[in-house]
């Protein structure tokens, strides 16, 4: 697929800013030994509330989910920035964002302890970031800008 110069630049900017967001969020969590999603999970709402509270209530599940979340965020972020395995990490990122959304869905009538930074009905910023990642999945750029370009074997797995 050929993009115009403007299209390429815009897509790369989107990829790097989302990667930046993920890497920093993951890094902060990894570097803080006391960080846990427990209170966030306990504040869950919507039809998946019970599932997230169940995770928060189990020490083992919570530890697994905390570790997977923090390192997952960091690797996804790194992958999007450096431009390697970006299609796979876009999907993984969408999966994480979907979990965040389902834990705190913007459904009318649900109140959360943690305040929202705006007013949302069904669509919120988590969901928008999720769809932005769908754009990255559909329009890969790492073969033009990123480590993928350096790989001789230009197969789609690395994209």
């Amino acid at each position: 697929m050929r993009y115009t110069k403007l299209q390429s630049v815009v897509l790369v900017i989107l990829r790097i800013t989302i990667g930046w967001h993920f890497l920093y969020e993951g890094g902060v969590k990894i570097l803080n030994p006391h960080w846990t999603a427990k209170s966030y999970l306990l504040d869950s709402g919507g039809f998946m509330k019970g599932f997230f509270e169940f995770i928060a209530g189990s020490q083992t599940l919570l530890a697994i989910s905390d570790t997977a979340n923090a390192w997952g965020l960091a690797f996804i972020g790194l992958s999007l920035i450096v431009g390697l395995f970006t299609r796979f990490s876009s999907l993984a990122a969408m999966f994480l964002l979907l979990l965040y959304y389902l834990s705190h869905p913007a459904f009318p009538g649900i109140q959360y302890l943690f305040p929202s930074d705006g007013s949302y009905f069904l669509i919120n910023k988590t969901l928008i970031e999720l769809f932005a990642l769908l754009v990255l999945y559909a329009f890969p750029t790492s073969n033009m800008f990123g480590l993928h370009r350096l790989m001789k074997n230009n197969n789609s797995f690395l994209a």
């Binding site: 920035i81 450096v82 033009m144 800008f145 990123g146 993928h148």
Partner: peptide, 10 residues
């Protein structure tokens, strides 16, 4: 250049 340009961002 295009392959490594993003590394400083990390």
């Amino acid at each position: 250049l295009a392959g490594l340009a993003a590394l400083p961002i990390v």
